[in-house]
Amino acid sequence: MSNITLNLVVLRSSDIARAAAFYSRLGLQFSRHRHDDGPEHFAAELPGDGVFELYPLASNGASTLGIRIGFRVPSVDAAIAALSDYPAALVTPARDSEWGRRAVVADPDGHRVELIQNHAAARVDCS
């Protein structure tokens, strides 16, 4: 099963434009889409053929609030700085860990988002 890769993540948002603006600060580039009679939504292509989508939260639909996602970023500190217009976003401040430099933020809907920077980029001694 080593050939399995994740290719799609969909989050539901009460305000997809606001959510897209937040994730754009992390470097994602969104375009608007609509498939057949489905709702308009935002999609961002990720390296390796993955797609990250933001769909509207329907009044009778299931929430994705309990889902936790993560992005590998070039710099955790730069990503946090890019979110400075969202002062309530920082959940866990940046710190070095065994996986690299790491922080957790919350998007405007409350989804927890882990930001991680690999050891080489963070210049952390993992020995």
Rank of each mutant, 00 (worst) to 15 (best):
A58P: 08
S97A: 12
R102M: 14
R72M: 13
G110H: 02
D96Q: 09
P74Q: 03
L54Y: 06
V51I: 14
R101S: 10
P108R: 06
E114V: 15
A58G: 04
R101E: 05
A94E: 06
D37L: 10
V91F: 11
A20T: 08
L11T: 07
H119M: 10
V51M: 02
L65F: 01
I69C: 14
D36K: 13
D15I: 02
V51A: 07
R72V: 13
V124D: 05
G66K: 07
M1S: 08
T64R: 00
V105S: 11
V76M: 10
H111W: 04
P108K: 01
I67F: 06
N7P: 00
R112P: 00
N60E: 12
V91N: 06
P108L: 06
F52A: 00
R12S: 08
G100P: 09
F52N: 04
L90Q: 09
N118K: 13
I67M: 13
A88T: 13
A58H: 05
A20R: 08
V104T: 13
L6D: 11
H111Q: 05
H33Q: 15
S84P: 01
M1F: 12
L26R: 05
I69G: 07
C126K: 14
G38I: 09
W99T: 15
M1Y: 07
L11K: 08
G110Q: 00
V76S: 04
A78P: 02
L57F: 03
A78L: 03
I67S: 05
I116N: 15
G66D: 02
F22P: 05
E114Y: 12
V105T: 09
Y86S: 03
Q117I: 09
R68K: 11
H111L: 02
G100V: 14
A58L: 14
P39T: 10
N60G: 12
D125E: 12
S127A: 13
M1L: 07
Q29V: 15
A79H: 08
R18T: 02
L6E: 07
A89M: 02
Q29W: 01
W99I: 15
D107L: 05
A106F: 07
C126A: 14
I16K: 03
A122N: 12
P56L: 02
V51G: 00
G66Y: 01
Y86R: 06
G27Y: 13
N3H: 14
D49C: 07
A88N: 12
G70N: 11
L8R: 09
I116H: 01
G27R: 11
A78M: 00
D109P: 01
E53W: 03
V124G: 03
G100F: 14
Y23G: 02
L115V: 12
S14N: 12
D96N: 15
Y86F: 14
H111Y: 04
L8S: 00
G50T: 09
A120E: 14
D109A: 00
S14Q: 06
S84Q: 11
E40Q: 11
T5K: 15
A44Y: 08
R18I: 03
S63I: 01
P74G: 08
A79T: 05
V104Y: 12
P74V: 07
E114P: 05
S13N: 07
D77M: 05
D36A: 15
L8Y: 15
Q29M: 10
N3P: 00
L46N: 09
I116F: 08
V10F: 00
D49P: 06
F52Y: 04
N118T: 10
V76H: 10
G48P: 01
G38W: 15
F42L: 04
S59F: 00
S24N: 08
L65C: 01
D37V: 14
S14I: 01
P56M: 06
